[in-house]
Design a protein around this nucleic acid. Structure first.
Ligand SMILES: [Mn+2]
Ligand SMILES: [Mn+2]
Ligand SMILES: [Mn+2]
Ligand SMILES: [Mn+2]
Lengths: 222, 222
DNA sequence: ATATTTTTTTAGACTAGCCTAAATTTAACC
DNA sequence: GGTTAAATTTAGGCTAGTCTAAAAAAATAT
């Protein structure tokens, strides 16, 4: 019942792709693109994962996680996000520096360790990017956030997360003075390119492109 | 200049075997036994490590780390021991529970991470088993400990480490009320089997076999 | 100094993961 | 519906790391 580093990465990829596209089957090419390897390699691995009952696989028909596969994938996600919290909260890394390290730490195999880490961190519900941390049973507590681009003018908003986790984007947000928990208000929407003028906490006049506004998640407070 | 999980384990093995036997060449069979794999596999790997300049290797003549190899090995040891401190001090694992998890964590690759972890832990000098933690330059601060078996009757002793890191031995010590920093005094030596009667902190009358006394490291305080 | 034993290396084979190129299946188009 | 294009799988090959069995070198014993 052992699972390799590589198999864990495939399961995580399938899990996140299936969520992304409304829980549909995931295609070989989607996985191939997501993991930056070739479709033929993916087919190889899908056969092995099916053999081990992590996925249901019908050739040419795409793939879906079994319950066993989902549990395994969610556990990797849980580990990834807990380690990210550790890196930011305890070791004082910036939120844009932790992803690659967590990509390694997520494969450390010890249930005792996850449990004790979770406890040490105070059982956090969200990682440094606002993503929910599933509990030990694999349950996610859904947050009802929307993209900033969909918010209405004058609504009181709180930043709850980001959709783009790239270093570039995260650094840009930090430089603009935007982080999790900050208060936003849209003052103006440019009807030509959908860019925004927003208030961040007490400061008016920050300009954000539509592309950026699509990748900031907010909760509407009023 | 990338190094694999497996290569790191070989370098660590060579490093610790070479220390163990007074910095001599390490033989293929020693490595094979230490890592629980076959001599033929070791020969294969030695060729690769020599190719990459981690070791000096002359067929049939044993092997020795290059400076590059030593640096790499010591870094793995440093990571291993820092993570053990983390697991015991922060996550509240017992000292006999941390070795296997550290065996995984030692391969996480990030200089930033080691540095920040070291800082977070308060730059510890010893791991939970009393083993010295090399600094970022690979320097060990030698401790002048002796085995309890070599101590003289009535000397004031402080426990500084253990030679046997097995779960069994560590649990036995814990149950006997012996841990790092505890004060010992040898009250009697049995001249037939070299077993000891010792005082632990304030309690007299603990019996220890010669075998156990060989694996407890102490510093002589007077 | 030979003969025997031990250690080490070589030869050949296997698996996990990856690749490229070719074949096949499915989807899209006219 | 037949033809083309796209997606997927198969076939064959590569590397890292392991193994067993056999050959070769070194050490030991007589
Ligand atoms: Mn991963
Ligand atoms: Mn995250
Ligand atoms: Mn290791
Ligand atoms: Mn230790």
């Amino acid at each position: 019942m052992e699972i390799s580093f590589t198999e864990e990465n495939y399961l995580k990829a399938i899990f996140s792709l299936s969520r992304l596209y409304g829980d549909a089957e995931v295609s070989t090419n989607q996985i191939s693109e997501h993991l930056n390897n070739k479709a033929a390699s993916v087919t190889d691995m899908l056969k092995r994962l099916a053999e081990k009952k992590f996925i249901d696989y019908k050739p040419y028909k795409g793939v879906r996680l079994t319950e066993k596969g989902r549990k395994t994938a969610v556990k990797v996600v849980r580990k990834h996000r807990l380690w990210e919290v550790f890196l930011v909260e305890k070791l004082k890394f910036k939120w844009d520096e932790v992803h690659d390290i967590a990509e390694q730490l997520e494969h450390i195999n010890s249930d005792e360790l996850i449990e004790k880490l979770d406890l040490f961190l105070g059982r956090p519900k969200h990682d440094p990017h606002g993503d929910p941390i599933p509990d030990a049973n694999g349950k996610f507590y859904a947050q009802k956030s929307i993209a900033l681009a969909e918010a209405k003018v004058k609504q009181v908003l709180v930043v709850t997360g980001v959709s783009d986790h790239s270093t570039q984007f995260l650094q840009y947000l930090s430089q603009s003075g935007i982080g999790l928990g900050d208060h936003l208000k849209v003052d103006e929407v440019n009807s030509y390119d959908h860019s925004l003028k927003v208030k961040v906490n007490k400061n008016h006049g920050l300009f954000l492109s539509h592309k950026v506004a699509l990748n900031i998640l907010v909760e509407v407070k009023s």
